[in-house]
Simulated assay, not measured.
Amino acid sequence: MSKDYDCAYNRLKDIDPVAANRIHPNNGRKINQYLNLYARFGVIPSKLLQEKTVENWGQVDNSRYDFCFLCVNASLTTLDPFVDRRVDHMVDAGLLKEVLDIYTTNADYTKGLRQAIGVREFESFLRCYILEHQKPCSESHDQTLNDQILKQNIQHIVDSPDENEWKALLTEAIQQVKLNTRRLVRRQRRRLNRLQMLYGWNIHYVDATKSIISGADDIWAVEVVKPSIGIIKSFLTEESSTEIGSNASEEMKMIQKDLWTQHVCEACGNKVLRGVHEWEQHRQGRGHRKRISRLKKSGSLCL
């Protein structure tokens, strides 16, 4: 962690330890955001954001507009290979060339484009390759030519069937991009489920599984486009049997998200979880449940 981040994070801890515990010490963007909020409003970030979040989080029924939510969904067994193929297509189409254009040695991967999936995963490969192959240049023309040669050589590694050190590093990076993208898919599905279950969003799911498997435009038209048009027409003509948000009970509407409470899991080596959702996800995880089971069998768990 840089000295600037260290100083900023320590200042945030002094001002608002609750907010500081909520974020990672290396998350410079979020640290600066919280400090700017405090400077602007004179209220500690945890209090300010808690109030705004509790008031607005996930609520759509108080809006001046009506909403029709459509989610094109598919089974995970179909989405996972689809995501993998998509990453392969992006690499074949020149993803690494684009990443190389914004690559800087020892860059900060918590800001800007470098945060995106498909950028930070290639950092180790590019750093090692550039350090070994890039030649010192005295003029901008030479640097441009050198960059072009680097891109050509990297693309050659992508296209080559040969297995070597560089191919292994690149393959590992590509696999990490695929893994992170699959994780993103699951995270998005969980968020949609929370919006539907906790806040009563009337989300209309359209199943694209058959269309993805077939890859045919006519299947897409029948399985995705046609049902979507029907849902929108029904919404516009107010023929829908349920109003947006009406399936949420009053009790659900009053749920307040405790975003700032820390939970400590002693069974997992005093691992710190931030917020109710993160804590519940951890409790349901396979690793946590296995540790609890072992501790129960050994009699080390105090219930």
Rank of each mutant, 00 (worst) to 15 (best):
S2H: 08
S2D: 14
A8K: 15
Y9G: 00
N10E: 13
A19W: 05
A20Y: 05
G28S: 03
Y34T: 03
L35V: 05
L35M: 03
N36S: 13
I44Y: 00
L48G: 05
Q50Y: 08
T53V: 13
E55D: 12
W57F: 14
G58V: 05
G58H: 07
R64Q: 12
Y65D: 10
F67T: 05
L70T: 00
L70S: 06
C71M: 11
A74M: 08
L76D: 15
L79D: 03
F82Y: 14
V83Q: 03
V83Y: 09
D84W: 03
D84P: 06
D84K: 11
R85D: 15
M90A: 15
V91C: 02
D92H: 13
A93T: 07
A93N: 14
E98W: 04
D101A: 11
Y103E: 07
T105G: 08
A107I: 04
L113P: 06
R114W: 05
A116C: 09
F122Y: 12
F122H: 01
E123V: 09
E123R: 11
S124N: 11
L126W: 00
R127I: 09
P136R: 08
S138Y: 10
L145N: 12
L145V: 12
N146E: 15
Q148K: 11
L150V: 05
L150A: 04
I154W: 03
Q155M: 13
H156P: 04
I157C: 04
V158S: 00
V158P: 04
P161F: 04
E163N: 11
A168W: 10
L169N: 08
L170K: 06
L170N: 02
I174H: 06
N180A: 04
T181M: 12
R182E: 08
R183L: 12
R186P: 04
R189V: 11
R190L: 10
R190W: 04
L192A: 04
R194F: 09
R194P: 02
Q196L: 04
L198V: 08
Y199P: 01
I203K: 03
H204T: 06
H204E: 01
Y205N: 09
V206D: 00
T209A: 05
S211D: 06
I212T: 01
I213Y: 01
I213Q: 13
A216M: 12
D217I: 11
V222F: 02
V224A: 00
P227L: 01
I229D: 08
I231F: 06
I232Q: 07
F235R: 05
T237S: 14
T237P: 02
E238N: 13
N247V: 06
E250G: 10
E251H: 11
K253E: 11
K253P: 00
K257T: 14
K257F: 13
L259M: 15
W260T: 08
T261G: 03
Q262N: 12
C265S: 07
K271L: 13
V272N: 06
R274N: 15
H277E: 12
E278H: 05
Q281F: 02
Q281R: 09
Q281L: 12
G287N: 14
S298G: 03
L301M: 01
